[in-house]
Design a protein around this nucleic acid. Structure first.
Lengths: 249, 249
DNA sequence: AAGTGGTCTAGACCACTCT
DNA sequence: GAGTGGTCTAGACCACTTG
């Protein structure tokens, strides 16, 4: 059929659907297709790209499996809102009675919020230049007024500038939806690394624990739509109240 | 084309590919298509079922995503061998020097192997009748001769009869390949739940730790090809040497 | 009723693996 | 070269959601 000038783009060893997926991935990452909104229907996308419906569908399926898109039968195809509800508290059980399933609205209080230079290791993990700037945030998360988690975050700084001047009182309890709203950063994936250790005296006091209380440490790397690591987070809590569930395969 | 008598099976509200996936899932689960071996080519399967190639491919893709099949371009489609190499030690770091990436061949020694009645909770989780029989296994896993993990397993008993009489010295270090070989049980999926606690004195001694050493406990449920829970496992180790990595989404 | 994604067909041709 | 899975087409029709 009528070959559009530069649009068709036959590839060199890569499949047509893979090329389309890449092109559309860039539209998502670049904000051309905003988070939470519908993208054009598959019929239009296929026609625009000059490919058969099946080919366009395979590209879309790829982006769905990557977590960038969600398809809803009869409604449309939408850009993901990301890990909006992935609360760290999901992995803890508190108050003895609370089994899995209830999410009892954790409150959070910002203790510190300051732009600092990243360590070499942090800069490497966040993909910043050596000694690049990050926003360091410390907060305590409370349940029924009782402090249960102590968190320190490092946020890559050009991206999170909007938070550097946000008053501590205006921070939300859930950060990922706030990242999306205020910084247009969508967290799609995260990796947690768990370990056990001891608390520093100040940390134990902040959590209302004995100085020798065993602590769990969760170190998280969170990634945006483009697959870049944009947040480092260390969470400390009482090891005795800790439970973590993971699926293998 | 010529409709074969009972083979075509038009469905009632379910897609044709889903029905094929179910039919082929049963062949895998039933051992009709043995683990590790190739199944017939997609062209033959499609012809046999009287559907188009694309329909057969979608059914196969479903079984691949479920972890039951693996497809290799140019070679064929194979029934999975399961979590053959998913060693519990993957999540621990020992010897300080060892970073992630090296798997230093853990040795295991069987301490006990006895058929017992399941607790109500165990019977429920294993899908057994009340007070059904299980094979209880206790073993210690060693690295360079040093005991590092203490494990207790409960295996659903009709299925694992072959192990009830196996001499302790003949048990392999890696259990899942042994399950496959001796019992024709393929472990496809597992769920780990981590928590933290203290050791009993005997446990601490078996691990060469002080009586008050902090311990990590990993409780695993392992599932076979049919999605049945067939193994319960509790693993204890030194919390200070523990590291666990998990991906979210 | 219009618009969306989901299912299905009946082919053609390509890329990879094995012998 | 024979056999396998991977890509791609150009349709038709179905199922679900929304006005």
């Amino acid at each position: 059929m009528g070959a559009s000038p530069g649009l068709l783009v036959p590839a060199e060893g890569v499949a047509r659907w893979a090329l389309l997926a890449q092109r559309w991935r860039e539209r998502i990452v670049g904000g051309d297709w905003p988070a939470g909104e519908a993208i054009p229907p598959e019929s239009e996308l296929a026609h625009e790209a000059g490919v058969a419906l099946g080919t366009a569908r395979q590209a879309l399926a790829t982006l769905v499996s990557e977590g960038l898109l969600e398809r809803i039968h009869g409604r449309g195809t939408f850009v993901t809102r990301g890990l909006a509800q992935a609360s760290m508290l999901r992995f803890f059980r508190f108050g003895r009675a609370g089994e899995a399933g209830d999410t009892p609205v954790p409150r959070s209080r910002i203790l510190e919020r300051r732009a600092v230079r990243a360590s070499a290791e942090q800069a490497r993990r966040l993909g910043l230049a050596a000694h690049g700037r990050v926003l360091r945030v410390r907060r305590v998360r409370q349940l029924d007024g009782r402090p249960v988690l102590l968190e320190t975050l490092w946020l890559a700084l050009p991206a999170f500038d909007a938070l550097a001047t946000l008053a501590p009182a205006d921070w939300d309890d859930l950060l990922y939806p706030m990242y999306s709203r205020r910084c247009r950063v969508t967290i799609v994936r995260a990796a947690d690394e768990l370990s056990f250790g001891a608390l520093e005296p100040a940390q134990a006091e902040a959590l209302g624990l004995a100085a020798d209380a065993p602590a769990v440490r969760v170190e998280r790397e969170a990634f945006d739509l483009a697959g870049r690591c944009v947040e480092l987070r260390t969470t400390l809590g009482d090891a005795r109240e800790f439970r973590y569930r993971a699926e293998i395969r």
